[in-house]
Design a protein around this nucleic acid. Structure first.
Lengths: 245, 245
DNA sequence: TCTCGAAAATTGTTCGTCAAGTTATCTCAC
DNA sequence: GTGAGATAACTTGACGAACAATTTTCGAGA
């Protein structure tokens, strides 16, 4: 029962997927890389997903012991996973106290959208300056449109985030993507907590997304930036009024 | 010899400072908070500082065992610290291999300055729009000017970074500051690796800083953004030519 | 009911152990 | 001598157990 790197362990919550095969089509001479995932990585991924989809209740303590028993891993492993998520802003903790999913309040929402705005607005301006629209972005947009025509609010939120992430990623800056992910993951956390409120207006979001894409396609940085800013402000306002009500 | 939260331990490398007293002047009724720091936190802080000041040689393996013995902490503790620094981008590691301080190459420098530009340019525009210049920013500028008139390259780098950080922090967005720190810390790592190259031109940097401040004071977002962009491009170009030479 | 103190819970840190993967070394055939 | 394969050494991944420090809970007594 001891040992490392077991491919799967079948914890009570969910089996941790431990391997994924990747193949570099560009350079077939290279040995095929098996992108294995350690237990710790898989644990972080699973917890992150559970937090982001509201399966871990806000404010309730997430103890090292509970994670340890739920997933049947050592406490040290659970601890490391929790610490990583604290680093991502998805959990909060002070010394000697259990981690919790942070509660959504007004200041937090404002701060989050502000930070998102700083990064995204400038990014959209740059994309427009370069008239850069990748296939990946087009794909993400289509996926969102498909989700938006349905009623599954969780997947609307999910694909919305993916759309914005695809835009940032298309600038191909590892560090910018990393910084943006830090912010938008917490944003996803926001949206998860209100996703049943039906305050989204999917068709309006779709229209706004298309406006941003059009501005980029037209090479109009100013418009791209402004539409991006407005898009965020709309979402922020809806969230805030919902919080107050 | 066992136990937790010892205030100091006197490891072979450096004693880990474990406490810092803070006092919330705004609400004197609150009990005074002793901002204690765990061994782990102090270890991360010490390692981060050593990496950022080039005291840990680039490319050399930083093993868990070596950190463990150097600081006289458990391997588990060393491991956790290393993992946090990997998360910050200050160390690189793949599974089952030792962490290393990443080597500076052209792609890395470009990416880094690009990401910095996206965040900072927009931030400076916003500061100009609000004509927002805090005391803290003024102080940071003065500190840099003092360092720039000296010859200690390390402190020039240090205070330069502090200046830009102060500007971002003055927007008072916790998340934006966090994202920015992620980027600029890696930038500091860059600068540390070439800090003996005397390619800085302190007086020119001072002039550029003052230009940005003036644009903000004048409420001229366009100029603030452009000067910020140029400032970064200058630094990037110098670094790149130095790397190629 | 309120307070104080003891007990329980939880985190911080350490040690020892083993498995698995990576790197260095050595040997042997050619 | 050189290259390939076996082998050993090193290093990380993960586990379990233990104890100290701190926070929380809860109950007894005023």
């Amino acid at each position: 029962m001891r040992g490392c790197c077991r491919a799967s362990r079948g914890g009570p919550v969910r089996g941790l997927r431990a391997q994924a095969i990747t193949f570099d089509a560009k350079d077939p001479s290279m040995p095929i890389r098996l992108a294995t995932q350690s237990i710790g990585d898989a644990l972080v991924a699973s917890l992150r997903e559970r937090i982001l989809t509201d399966q871990i209740s806000v404010g309730a303590p997430l103890t090292e012991a509970s994670v340890s028993t739920d997933y049947d891993v050592a406490r040290q492993t659970a601890k490391a996973a929790i610490e990583r998520l604290v680093g991502e802003g998805l959990l909060e903790r002070t010394a000697h106290r259990s981690a919790r999913v942070p509660e959504l309040d007004e200041a937090r929402v404002r701060d989050l959208y502000f930070a998102r705005g700083v990064v995204e607005v400038r990014a959209y301006q740059l994309l427009a300056k370069r008239r850069l629209l990748t296939e990946e972005v087009g794909r993400a947009h289509k996926v969102f449109r498909a989700a938006a025509s349905g009623t599954d609010v969780a997947s609307i939120v999910q694909t919305d985030v993916e759309f914005h992430r695809a835009l940032i990623d298309s600038l191909e800056s590892e560090r910018l993507s990393r910084a943006h992910r830090l912010i938008i993951n917490e944003n996803r956390l926001c949206l998860a907590q209100v996703q049943n409120a039906h305050l989204l207006g999917p068709e309006e979001i779709t229209r706004e997304h298309e406006g941003i894409l059009a501005a980029i396609r037209d090479g109009d940085p100013l418009r791209a930036g402004e539409l991006g800013q407005q898009h965020l402000e709309h979402a922020e306002r809806k969230l805030l009024t919902h919080l107050q009500g």
